[in-house]
Amino acid sequence: MPRTSYAIAIGSNRRGRHGSPAQEVMAAIRALGGVTAASPIHHTPPLGPSKRRFANAVTLIESNEAPPALLRRLKGIEHAFGRRRGQNWAARVIDLDIVLWSGGSWGEPRLTVPHRLFRQRDFVLAPLVQVAPDWRDPVTGLSMRQLYARLRRKR
């Protein structure tokens, strides 16, 4: 596969072997490889039943991997960091999600790119705008800057 770019959302709200949630996010960025840009860490309130605040960031990476291969690698990193599958919305040491791919859209049962919910998530769009404001959503055609402005207006 030719070299392509991905936007990866990273989040943590539980201490792990690297330290605080922010330190877990920084360690995950180092573990990704091929990083071309990384947003500052944003501290955000939790969604769902978790009571712990999140540390969130978005990084851009370059890779020769197709989306399913990258997803397998991301799940391996999560596992190495101590993430265990289980309850949705629970505290987690690390969460890595493919948000966008320079190849456009990808759809299969286990993976949809762009991420289905990224347009509704301030904790993804705010850091994404910092690293890729002009990247266009292949579904809506809108830039990240435009999507973020729309989300902010809804509040």
Score class of each variant (00 low, 15 high):
7 A>D: 01
11 G>K: 05
13 N>M: 06
16 G>C: 03
18 H>K: 03
21 P>H: 09
22 A>N: 06
24 E>D: 09
24 E>V: 09
25 V>H: 08
29 I>K: 01
33 G>R: 12
33 G>Q: 12
39 S>Y: 00
47 L>D: 10
48 G>M: 09
55 A>N: 05
57 A>E: 10
57 A>M: 09
57 A>Q: 05
59 T>A: 15
60 L>W: 01
64 N>D: 15
66 A>N: 13
67 P>S: 15
67 P>V: 14
68 P>E: 12
76 G>H: 08
79 H>C: 08
84 R>V: 14
85 R>A: 14
85 R>G: 11
86 G>F: 08
86 G>Y: 09
94 I>G: 02
95 D>C: 07
97 D>A: 13
98 I>K: 11
100 L>E: 01
101 W>K: 10
103 G>M: 14
103 G>S: 12
104 G>V: 04
105 S>M: 11
107 G>V: 04
112 T>Q: 15
112 T>R: 15
113 V>N: 12
114 P>T: 08
122 D>F: 12
124 V>H: 02
126 A>F: 09
126 A>H: 11
138 P>L: 12
138 P>T: 08
139 V>W: 01
140 T>Y: 05
141 G>K: 00
142 L>A: 14
142 L>T: 04
143 S>C: 01
146 Q>Y: 04
146 Q>N: 07
147 L>G: 10
148 Y>G: 01
150 R>F: 02
152 R>I: 03
153 R>M: 08
154 K>T: 13
154 K>D: 11
